[in-house]
Design a protein around this nucleic acid. Structure first.
Length: 556
DNA sequence: GCCGTTTTCGGCCCGACTGTTTTCAGTCG
């Protein structure tokens, strides 16, 4: 079992205990264990072998024994028993945004509804509002929530799919029958949500490829196979397809299977594939078409083919262009690590600066800083900086944008900081014009440098809030405000469409990790992919600049 | 169920908003 599978079971246990109204602190303990297992840098099987499971934060005697049982036997008696108490459909109802375990339990007990489909029917028939304490508004939210849920069915985040695809690819490449292999399709293009994992394989011996694929540890089932394709399901219910081609056709097929349908149709219109037999590289395929090499992230038929024929493609930003990170949390608020621990990881990434931007006081759940603690943190950072060589910790804050667009700190406090990231963490449901004016007011504050996760979307969980993007971009451009690409794979906010638009407005971008755990600094990988999909070059991204140029820009 | 220590029990993140009622419970971040 993988770390993530174990973590999901711990979360599931917490869900069931919530429905059963067990001790809230016990529930929190299971959630905490799930989170820290998710964040482990090491394989939990490896920790188990070394007898180091109890070193995981939040894992005590009871959780440890359950993890060990799961790793040894693949199941756990306590969990199996709990599953008998609550129907699986009721647990699925918990994933509907806007209703929690209390409401789910109430609906289950009062109406006997135990699955999402019946719940939707009951909501449509106005049955839910008959329960005392539940009204028409909740009923409406249930319908809307289920609608959102249905839309996301089958798609998973790149953050889940890419590491799995890479691991699968490594496994396939171990086979001597495989001459070449590559991840293709939407995963290679770096879409933030993907429907499946596609891998192209060049091989002559199909049966040996099948043999290799079928022994991959995360394959759960195989639904069809022939000499050209193997299809099935991986863990987390992710579909996969292995496309097997003759080695002579590999590079042509690589281009064919990577681009979106629209892209490849435009690319190969009226062209005989036989012309591309035995070409030596992907670049050669494009050359034969009279085009520059088009990076996978751009192969979406958004004008890239024309640009490739005119030598006008952008020189896309790369991960190794990044010199720092401007949105990082520490244990001064809801981050897991001390500032110096985060700095140590940043140095391994060859960064020369990071900004520590903990939450501000309006977010008490996150242990947000008040003026006194912010000032104390500043002194700690100054002290740490004295011992740094070729590295600087910038003093920052992720300051809350309040409901009316005012900030959570006064100008007198903000003016002393190197980096001010302003973000929305409340009142997501404001009507569009008010939301727009709220953010523009923050943009106009002279001390604000960056707007964090501008649209507030959470992939598969929460839509972006209502916002007039053009008005916001205009204001950002006028006020020399940097927009963040938040790299967390559940956010990727701003998305590639807004990023491209922002570039056209002349707005600078920061690719930030928003790390709450030291290892999460590496999530910028996804931010970079997103930026590339938005046609951004290194010069558009302020944290590819060296420290002097950056500070100069921040001081405007 | 975990954790820490003036250590084997007592405390554990909390405020705002929403919806349903009319003073509060549920949900979210």
């Amino acid at each position: 079992m993988t770390n993530r599978e174990i973590a999901e079971i711990m979360d599931r246990i917490a869900d069931i205990l919530e429905i059963k109204e067990d001790n809230p602190f016990k529930i929190r303990a299971y959630r905490k264990a799930a989170r820290s297992i998710c964040h482990l840098d090491e394989d939990i099987n490896y920790l188990y072998k070394l007898n180091r499971i109890s070193e995981i934060p939040g894992v005590g005697k009871a959780v440890k024994s359950k993890i060990e049982e799961l790793l040894e036997k693949g199941n756990c008696e306590y969990y199996d028993k709990l599953l008998l108490d609550v129907p699986s459909g009721v647990l699925e109802m918990l994933s509907i945004p806007g209703i929690g375990h209390k409401t789910v339990k109430l609906i289950y007990e009062e109406l006997g509804i135990n699955n999402i489909d019946d719940l939707l029917k009951a909501a449509q028939n106005k049955e839910i509002r008959k329960i005392p304490g539940v009204g028409g508004k909740t009923e409406y939210n249930i319908k809307k929530g289920i609608d959102l849920l249905k839309k996301r069915t089958g798609k998973v985040t790149l953050g889940l799919a890419l590491p799995l695809a890479e691991d699968f690819l490594d496994h396939i490449k171990e086979s001597r029958a495989v001459q070449r292999a590559c991840i293709v399709g939407s995963v290679r293009r770096g879409k933030s949500l993907v429907g499946d994992i596609d891998i192209l394989v060049a091989a002559n011996d199909y049966s040996r490829v099948y043999q290799k694929v079928s022994t991959y540890k995360s394959v759960r089932s195989i639904s069809s196979k022939d000499s050209k394709h193997i299809k099935g399901k991986l863990i987390y219910q992710i579909d996969f397809e292995i496309i097997i081609v003759d080695p002579d056709d590999y590079f042509y097929s690589l281009v064919w299977t990577t681009g979106s349908k629209e892209h490849r149709n435009a690319l190969f219109k009226g062209i005989n594939p036989a012309e591309f037999s035995r070409v030596e590289s992907e670049k050669d395929v494009f050359r034969k078409l009279g085009l520059n090499y088009i990076p996978p992230e751009l192969r979406e038929d958004q004008g890239e083919i024309e640009k490739a024929s005119n030598n006008q493609l952008p020189k896309l930003v790369q991960e190794n262009n990044l010199k720092g990170d401007l949105h990082v949390h520490s244990d001064w608020s809801d981050g897991a690590h001390k500032i110096n621990e985060v700095v140590d990881v940043a140095k391994t990434m060859n960064y020369s600066y990071i900004a520590i931007t903990d939450h501000s006081k309006s977010l008490p759940i996150s242990g947000g800083l008040n003026e006194e603690r912010l000032s104390a943190q500043g002194k700690v950072i100054d002290g740490l900086n004295k011992n740094q060589k070729d590295f600087q910790i910038l003093r920052g804050i992720e300051v809350d944008i309040l409901k009316d667009g005012q900030l959570d700190f006064s100008d007198d406090v903000l003016k002393n900081l190197d980096v001010v990231v302003a973000s929305v963490h409340s009142n997501f449901k404001l009507e569009g014009e008010k939301q727009t004016q709220r953010i523009i007011r923050a943009i106009k504050n002279e001390h604000v440098d960056i707007i964090g996760h501008l649209t507030g979307r959470l992939l598969n969980r929460r839509s972006a809030y209502e916002l007039d993007i053009d008005k916001v971009l205009e204001a950002a451009a006028d006020n020399k405000i940097i927009l963040e690409i938040n790299s967390h794979p559940d956010r990727l906010d701003i998305d590639e469409v807004i990023a491209k638009k922002a570039r056209d407005y002349g707005i600078k971008i920061a690719i930030n990790s928003d790390a709450h755990h030291k290892e999460d600094l590496r999530l910028v990988k996804y931010g970079v992919i997103n930026a590339r999909r938005g046609w951004l070059e290194a010069e558009n991204i302020v944290n590819t600049w060296d420290k002097e140029a950056l500070l100069d820009y921040l001081n405007k």
